[in-house]
Design a protein around this nucleic acid. Structure first.
Lengths: 146, 146
DNA sequence: GCGTAATGGTTATGCGCATAATCTTATGCG
DNA sequence: CGCATAAGATTATGCGCATAACCATTACGC
């Protein structure tokens, strides 16, 4: 691998990150959501109520970030935070009814976003794309490949 | 395209963004840099001195972000900001000697990061990877495809 | 030429992320 | 047991990004 390829690759990843996130933000704004919050709601919908430590792990961000995000999502009425009776340290986070309804809208937006993103890519690329992205993610995750 | 694929794709892009950036931050920390600043320095090195509006365009971020980043990079001595004699509104940004030396180190780190990122990917994928990422970027850039 | 629009920058504010330090509660081991 | 350690959460702080509002300058149309 040469310096030029490396530079192009890293820059391409950086640009995709910025723009994909920016586009997501545009689409989520009408719902009153900021980019990043949708992932928390989708995760809650996918697995049911979870404590923040689990959310932190699933979302790939640190506990303090989850604390602030959950605060704001609770303030806007999309989730509810209740102390865990079995572990007094933990607080469990659950979707409200309003939150569940929001998730349905998010799913539609994410379909739009994904279709927009992969427009013009060859069909065989589409099949391997999630795998490629996942491989790169775990490669730089620092964690040993389980 | 189904909802499941869309969700997996968007989530994969989000995770790759977070982790690639986090790993970049780890590598840049010993140089006293924060993730994002390296792009500005690399761009300056690639094209020579530029005014902030051009940097904003090249980096894919908004002018206020450039203002703050250039301030900090100037404070740490890596760049120099001087008023443009031809246009009293503009300020041109140039690498200092120290900044140029830093760029060489950044290039090495970016080689490391890129090799780490694409580890385990098939050879034919590597060839098309930059193109795929670029296509996706422009797809969500909002700009008409020039 | 002059007034209006466009361009370059900055300030203020807010969000998502990070790390470091701290507090509380669980858990492990002697 | 009791005590050290680990785990869950929070606070404080800082950076990169964003938008909105504003100022200074340049460019343009009449």
């Amino acid at each position: 691998m040469d310096l030029e390829y490396a530079g192009a690759l890293n820059q391409a990843i950086r640009l995709l990150s910025l723009r994909h996130r920016a586009r997501a933000a545009q689409l989520l704004a009408p719902l009153g959501l900021h980019a990043g919050q949708e992932a928390l709601l989708l995760e809650l919908d996918r697995t049911g109520p979870r404590i923040q430590a689990q959310l932190s792990e699933a979302l790939g961000c640190e506990p303090p970030s989850v604390t602030l995000m959950t605060r704001k999502l609770e303030a806007s009425g999309h989730i509810k935070r209740t102390p865990d009776p079995a572990d007094k340290r933990a607080t469990v986070v659950a979707l409200t009814d309003g939150g569940k309804a929001l998730v349905e809208q998010i799913r539609q937006l994410w379909l739009t976003l994904a279709e927009e993103t992969i427009r013009g890519l060859p069909a065989d690329t589409l099949g391997q794309l999630p795998g490629i992205l996942h491989t790169m993610s775990t490669n730089v995750s620092g964690k040993p490949p389980a």
